[in-house]
């Protein structure tokens, strides 16, 4: 990007600018496997057109195609979509649609550690891609709810069967969701917030 003429730098549209009264932000992570609907969910509830932040990581080419000495490196760009919801004149909520592979998570400082909680999006056609994410969140003590995206040709399992298959504790909410619909995505976020609130009431939040 050419910064010489910074008049040309795209910025927020006037209506997307936050008021000066905003003092702090919170974040929620929407995590799930490839193509499960993360970007769709972020977009359906965001008040701004979803944006993308990128990070580059280089992988030292240890033992891989090591024909040119030990200097071979592969650069991978990892992108994360995010959106924003104004909560009060002082508080704003950001939603991040995050790839399911944990090796990407460390690229962004405190992405999960600082989040209020997470929504795990699952597609019942490919349930297994969510197993790893769920295990990682449990290990990190990140509170989460599970949202089952309603893809038309996906098998439908009774909630208790899903709970058993995903080996989820009885208190963890499992909801159906159509990420394309704002009301449905909002309800999913509300389910997460109510769950966090109940954890706070019982002092169970880690």
């Amino acid at each position: 990007m050419d910064f010489k003429n910074s008049d040309t730098i795209p910025g927020p549209r006037t209506e997307d600018r936050l008021p000066q009264t905003v003092q702090a932000a919170v974040k929620i992570v929407i995590v799930g496997g490839f193509g499960v609907g993360k970007t769709t969910m972020v977009g359906s509830v965001s008040e701004i057109k979803p944006l993308t932040t990128e990070e580059t990581m280089t992988q030292a080419g240890i033992g891989i195609d090591d024909n040119f000495g030990s200097d071979t490196k592969t650069a991978t760009t990892v992108a994360m979509d995010f959106g924003r919801i104004s909560i009060t004149e002082k508080l704003v909520l950001y939603l991040f649609g995050t790839p399911g592979q944990e090796r990407f998570w460390f690229l962004w400082n405190g992405l999960f550690e600082g989040a209020l909680g997470a929504v795990v999006l699952i597609d019942t056609r490919r349930l297994e891609v969510s197993f790893d994410v769920i295990g990682r969140l449990e290990e990190r003590g990140v509170p989460f709810v599970v949202a089952v995206n309603s893809f038309p040709d996906a098998p439908r399992y009774p909630v208790e069967e899903l709970r058993q298959a995903l080996d989820l504790a009885p208190e963890i909410p499992i909801v159906e969701c159509d990420a394309r619909r704002r009301a449905s995505s909002r309800d999913t976020l509300m389910t997460l917030m109510r769950f966090l609130h109940s954890l706070a009431m019982t002092g169970a939040l880690t």
Binding site: A24, A25, V26, K27, I87, T88, L91, L93, G110, E113, G114, A115, L116, G117, V142, P143, M193, L196, H197, L199, A200, M201, G203, L205, T206
Partner: peptide, 16 residues
């Protein structure tokens, strides 16, 4: 940012 706390701030959750 306001981050997840071991003792959750209930008023924050309610505001969200």
């Amino acid at each position: 940012p306001l981050v997840r706390q071991s003792v959750a701030d209930r008023s924050l959750l309610e505001a969200v």
